[in-house]
């Protein structure tokens, strides 16, 4: 097997249990291939966010093994691991006391880059997410719209050029038009930068649009894994439920 095609992330029969033994997720096995957008799809509470947090070691598995770049997350130094992985969450979590520029430069700052290199990188990244550096770099997060904030969130996640990005319903709180715009831009961005993305959503339309492959979660287990094309034809009951919901909204809208 070609070395560069080795999976970026690998789940090997992973379970995470609460203190009382009840599983939040169990029996999870899958690979994340380099350069793909893997969408983790599922209802609320199906275990997709938990699975995401197992990748950047915000959670550790109770059973099985999660590896990133071939090394188990248990062996990774958590801060080193997280600085190699971009992380974008629905609530964004921009630091309100930092300007946009300082927010974007958080990981470079932690990594000790010099000021000039940071400034250049911030300018480059703001351009990348279609925010004019001249007018946005010195603003505070409270002076931005929801869509602008999430653009900064994505720029921040890309700052240290991590090969892997984790996105947890990043566009969930945005209005439908802004959401569509950001979905398109994210897809274009990924095609240009060749990053590997793991994207959590409960929105099947968003999943189908973005995914190279869809991993469908149901009650803490992986119910289906395959391409969007396979997903639409799947006989899996949960997949069919999602596809049916998609068709129903379309039909209703067309009536």
């Amino acid at each position: 097997m070609n070395e560069t095609r080795a999976p970026v992330v690998q789940f090997l029969d992973v379970a995470l249990r609460l203190a009382d033994g009840r599983p939040i997720v169990s029996g999870i096995s899958f690979d994340v291939r380099p350069g793909e957008i893997l969408v983790l799809l599922g209802r609320s509470g199906s275990g997709k966010t938990t699975t995401l947090k197992l990748i950047n070691r915000l959670l550790l598995p109770s059973e099985g093994k999660v590896t990133v770049e071939g090394r188990s997350t248990v062996e990774w130094d958590p801060t080193k691991l997280r600085r190699r992985i971009g992380y974008v969450i629905q609530d964004i979590g921009l630091f309100p006391h930092f300007t946009v520029a300082r927010n974007v430069a958080v990981v470079p700052t932690l990594e000790g880059w010099d000021e000039r290199r940071k400034r250049e990188r911030v300018r480059e990244l703001l351009d990348l997410v279609a925010l004019d550096p001249a007018s946005f770099a010195d603003r505070y997060p409270s002076q931005l719209s929801g869509g602008q904030k999430q653009r900064v969130g994505v720029a921040r996640a890309l700052a240290a050029d991590p090969p892997l990005l984790l996105l947890d319903e990043p566009f969930g709180a945005l209005d439908p038009l802004t959401r569509l715009e950001l979905q398109r831009e994210l897809k274009a961005l990924q095609a240009r930068l060749h990053k590997t993305l793991v994207f959590v959503t409960h929105d099947v339309r968003e999943g189908l649009f973005l995914a190279s492959r869809i991993a469908l979660f149901r009650e803490g287990a992986l119910a289906f894994l395959g391409s969007p094309h396979e997903f639409l034809r799947s006989e899996n009951p949960e997949a069919r439920a999602f596809v049916k919901a998609l068709k129903d909204t379309d039909t209703t809208a067309n009536e």
Binding site: R82, R83, Y87, I92, G93, L94, V106, L110
Partner: peptide, 14 residues
Amino acid sequence: DPAVREAGRGMGMT
């Protein structure tokens, strides 16, 4: 805001 803390930890802050 808990999201601020989660983002900080997720970015690799000690």
